[in-house]
């Protein structure tokens, strides 16, 4: 294994922090959203579903461009934050975290939606009729029964954030220790024609991505077997 430079380690730390925080935030946000999508039949459901899936279709540049405008010092969100005495979010870690949450949203919602549909409304209704409160139902019925869905959602979100590039490049620039994630650092190495450095990080990511996917698929199979 070739030696990693301090800059590599810094990018690895930023990347892991971004992936972990994005995953944690998205699991919290996507659970109620996926539940709502799985059980609601209102016309607004289609619109929400389309909004959730938008990042799958849009080029990252479109998302990056609008986020830069919105979160920057002259944008509505950035200006509101500045008016509150905070700083705007362009070219900051918080900014790329917001972007990652939006960008990976479909990867968290989709597996959960699938799992909740499989589960159906019945187990939860039974639990409610036996006197279980909403939180109780979440932790003792939904979470254990949809464990596979949660694991797949978390893994895919983590992995997709790891592979994020265009949005971060546009919104975050390439600031070491702040917004320079692995994918951006690899681009930077390639631009500097430092192919050895680009190669050692690329190979690492390639292997990691493969392992993640093998994990996801093996979980998928295991839980397929125990589904009702």
């Amino acid at each position: 294994m070739p030696e990693l430079s301090p800059q590599d380690w810094q990018a690895i730390a930023v990347t892991l922090k971004l992936c972990a925080l994005t995953t944690a935030i998205l699991l919290v946000l996507a659970t109620p959203l996926a539940w709502w999508l799985a059980h609601r039949q209102s016309p607004s459901r289609t619109v929400v579903q389309a909004l959730v899936a938008l990042p799958l279709v849009l080029p990252p540049t479109v998302l990056g461009f609008y986020l830069l405008i919105a979160l920057g010092p002259r944008g509505p969100v950035g200006q509101t934050l500045e008016a509150m005495g905070l700083t705007h979010l362009a070219f900051s870690f918080e900014g790329i975290l917001v972007a990652s949450v939006i960008y990976s949203l479909p990867f968290a919602v989709q597996p959960l939606l699938e799992a909740f549909r499989h589960l159906g409304a019945r187990p939860v209704e039974v639990a409610a009729s036996l006197g279980a409160g909403p939180l109780d139902r979440l932790f003792t019925v939904i979470l254990p029964l949809c464990r596979g869905g949660f694991i797949v959602a978390a893994t895919l979100t983590f992995a997709h954030t790891l592979g994020e590039f265009g949005v971060i490049l546009m919104l975050g620039g390439s600031i070491p220790g702040e917004t320079q994630v692995l994918s951006v650092l690899i681009y930077d190495y390639a631009e500097a024609m430092d192919y050895a450095a680009a190669h050692r990080l690329s190979l690492g990511l390639l292997i990691f991505a493969f392992v993640v996917l093998v994990t996801v698929y093996s979980f998928n199979r295991r839980f397929d077997g125990v589904r009702p």
Binding site: L68, G72, P73, R74, G78, H88, A90, F91, G173, S174, I175, P176, D188, E191, A192
Partner: peptide
């Protein structure tokens, strides 16, 4: 941070 001068200038103008 390296980049095309025009891009870096735009980034500075955007905070």
């Amino acid at each position: 941070i390296h980049g095309a001068s025009g891009k870096l200038a735009t980034q500075i103008l955007n905070g």
